[in-house]
Design a protein around this nucleic acid. Structure first.
Length: 237
DNA sequence: GTGAGGATTATCT
DNA sequence: GATAATCCTCACG
């Protein structure tokens, strides 16, 4: 049922994944997050502008193979020599697009998530930071390339529960803006393909480097908050 | 609070 | 051999 959502291109799917609940099971326990921040990436075979920021921008390779695979499955990659990142594959098989899950709120299994994070960094971690940022999120969930890449998101070890569209009530406005860490025009205002729940403390910080494009946030049509709460949310993150 | 710099390695040119 | 869909620490204000 909800699986069909992933037949759409990532740009369409991304905002609909906000407020979704994702559980990842492991022998040592389960961790569940509520998704608060995502980014869309297109690729070969997908409609829309050429996405120079996508791993699948030109062709299929060993690393990005899962992005060309069946929708509703995971694409996990390893980057910067130390982090894993979790994506949800979109578009029909053969066409490459995906949604990077950038941040979430740990709603159950916080103890285990904390253990996993602390194993790498000794200091105590604020609950809101447990799954803040793609690398931290994957670590908190115990997601790795060798065990999770290419796996069905609707079957163990994953369990994905999408919000019912008719009942969806994001806790804040749904905002969008440029993607984080993407170089060149694909990382600028022409590609406002990052979506997040405004004002949510678990959304990752935007850290523009020197000379980077200024951050331009827009209200997304999916927003449902009352006008009174918009003022506060407009400045986040 | 903000920003610069380093860590660390699979993947692709 | 260069790059990367990142994160953390530390210096400075």
């Amino acid at each position: 049922m909800t699986r069909e959502l992933f037949l759409s291109p990532a740009l369409e799917v991304a905002p609909r994944l906000l407020e979704a609940l994702l559980t990842v099971a492991a022998p040592e326990g389960d961790v569940t997050i509520r998704i608060t921040e995502v980014e869309a990436y297109h690729g070969v075979g997908t409609d829309g502008p050429y996405d120079a920021g996508s791993h699948a921008k030109d062709r299929r390779t060993e690393r990005n193979a899962s992005m060309f695979g069946p929708p509703g499955h995971a694409y996990v990659y390893f980057s910067y020599g130390m982090h894993f990142a979790l994506n949800m594959v979109c578009s029909p098989e053969g066409a490459a697009s995906g949604v990077l899950i950038r941040a979430g709120e740990v709603v159950s299994g916080a103890g285990l998530a904390h253990e996993r994070r602390s194993a790498k960094r000794g200091a105590p971690i604020d609950a809101r930071m447990l799954a803040r940022g793609p690398g931290n999120l994957a670590a908190a969930l115990g997601v790795r390339r060798d065990t999770h890449d290419g796996r069905d998101l609707f079957a163990p070890p994953f369990a994905l529960r999408l919000p019912d569209e008719t009942e969806r009530r994001p806790r804040g406005d749904v905002m969008n803006g440029p993607r984080v860490g993407v170089a060149g025009e694909a990382g600028g205002p022409a590609f406002p393909w990052r979506f997040w729940i405004a004002g949510d403390p678990t959304v990752s910080a935007f850290r523009p480097g020197r000379g980077a494009q200024p951050f331009i946030a827009e209200r997304h049509p999916a927003s449902r908050l009352s006008p009174s709460s918009r003022r506060r949310d407009a400045s986040s993150p």
